[in-house]
């Protein structure tokens, strides 16, 4: 896992400026934008991670590519830059059509690890109880 993570060490795990932009957006439209986006991110990401685990067992790389593509977008929106880059990396790696099981699995493990690690950043912004 370290070899993959090494490629993404320069990416911020959490980019606060993205959340600041969303807070401003929420203030402008008088809605709790941040909480709604985080709640949906947790709900959809958990499904994506489970799907990826199953697709990995089935060795279905094209499905993994499509699932990781779904996960990628909300990571970028919420400023989870490293997670976004990892998803992008896996998507591009599979797109080259030379993907090896070992590396795909390592990527999936890294994504799951980084996802769990980023929860702490998002929880502080989320007024809705998540995963309780």
């Amino acid at each position: 896992m370290n070899s993959i993570f090494g490629n993404y060490k320069n990416d911020l795990s959490f980019d606060q400026t993205k959340i600041d932009q969303l807070i401003q957006l929420g203030n402008d439209i008088k809605e709790d934008v941040v909480s709604q986006l985080i709640e949906l991110h947790f709900a959809t990401s958990e499904i994506c991670l489970n799907d990826m685990e199953n697709e990995l067992k089935e060795l279905n790389f094209s499905k993994i590519k499509s699932t990781v593509h779904k996960l990628k977008s909300s990571c970028g929106t919420l400023g989870l830059n490293r997670l976004h880059s990892l998803c992008d990396g896996l998507e591009n790696y599979i797109a080259q059509n030379k993907a090896q099981m070992f590396l795909v699995k390592t990527y999936v493990d890294c994504i799951a690890f980084e996802y769990n690690d980023t929860k702490k950043y998002l929880w502080q912004w989320n007024k809705i109880k998540v995963g309780a």
Partner: peptide, 9 residues
């Protein structure tokens, strides 16, 4: 869904 929600806001 995430992108739809963001676009909506």
């Amino acid at each position: 869904k995430n992108d739809l929600l963001m676009a909506k806001f």
